[in-house]
Design a protein around this nucleic acid. Structure first.
Lengths: 200, 200
DNA sequence: CATGTACGATCAAGCGCTTGGTTAACAAAC
DNA sequence: GTTTGTTAACCAAGCGCTTGATCGTACATG
């Protein structure tokens, strides 16, 4: 239990902590970020941070949990209305990329700072992440099953390679680089489905 | 100045520091690794580490520098004997993946802990990394120029997507997972060149 | 309407501990 | 006997987290 979710004010403070925390953690790293910096970004002193969170690590857990819930919900909804296996794959790629670039701080934190979590915290998040990756794998399995995708690349490596293609984006994407998440996703879909070789 | 590269013994100690440092940094993170842990892995005390390195950050710089020199040399050599643009792309993918999985600790460190470097150190490494990415871009540019690769994906995004596909591997590859670097690279080549769609 | 009070929220200060880095003295090695 | 290598002990700074006191506001009481 993350303490004291009573008043609306408290809820706003917790949200603010998650927002500023994700920003700092993704830019500087979890352990390079001090609770005093974090508190300063929230316009309070560091004692106040501990009024809302039992520990710095608990804030990290909260950020990771929220990020995984967000992307799981987004992709689940996106493939829900898909008309074919190939359509589902396309929708998944768009939904995944749109989510991680629009909430890039929290997703960068979740993807790169997970190892700072210990014990129960870590187990919980790793389990949620495994569940999300299973979702991706099942979408690819369906597309293979209906004959859309070739069988020459086995399911497990294919899933890993797709996640490679999608996730490394967090390291170079910037909001003002002149390419939206959907424009990036378009190119990923073309590449993932048809490859880069000139068909002519 | 990295001190005293005089004797063979000194050189061995420096190599040991790089080896153990890359292992610890890639597994626990740079700032979660203490100089005492590092020294213990070298079977000395932390004072001795400072006999060989002026600072902890300097060890990180050394590891990153070596990793970039290694992969740049490997890929340069691999594409040197290529007979076509397509062949060069294939050789590059194999060479890149083989290098990062065989020296995964140092390459993971270089790819994920770079932000811990400050000032001059950082500038130097970022420049070397940019040079390597230019090399990859030029290999793709040649393959586009000779008509091997389609033009519908622009050069810059295509380069980024290829690096996505290659680099995220560091997060899941383990030596005993039953898939060698070359086997992974084979699947990447298939996917990158021809895509995952069933041609039938 | 004024006033007492209870409570959520905040702060300044600081505690105990760890960190990167230093140093004086000493041991091997050539 | 000087150079090269190693150590134990140490330091200043910074860390996560705690604490006792205080502020501000909502509201019951007189």
């Amino acid at each position: 239990m993350t303490a004291i979710g009573k008043t609306a004010r408290t809820q706003r403070a917790v949200e603010r902590a998650c927002h500023e925390g994700a920003k700092l953690f993704s830019e500087k790293g979890y352990s390079e970020t001090t609770t005093r910096e974090l508190a300063a970004a929230m316009d309070v002193t560091n004692g106040t941070f501990y009024y809302y969170f039992p520990s710095k690590e608990d804030l990290l857990r909260q950020i990771c949990e929220d990020a995984l819930a967000e992307i799981t919900a987004a992709v689940t909804k996106a493939v829900d209305g898909a008309e074919s296996g190939l359509d589902a794959v396309t929708q998944m790629i768009h939904s995944h990329v749109r989510t991680i670039v629009e909430s890039r701080h929290s997703h960068t934190t979740m993807l790169t700072e997970l190892r700072a979590l210990n014990g129960e915290h870590r187990v919980t998040i790793v389990a949620a992440r495994d569940r999300y990756e299973s979702l991706v794998r099942e979408i690819l399995a369906s597309a293979k099953a209906d004959g859309s995708l070739k069988t020459s690349i086995e399911l497990a490596p294919l899933t890993l390679l797709l996640l490679n293609l999608l996730n490394w984006t967090i390291f170079w994407y910037r909001p003002n680089m002149g390419l939206t998440g959907d424009e990036i996703a378009d190119r990923m879909v073309t590449l993932f489905l048809n490859g880069a070789v000139n068909p002519a």
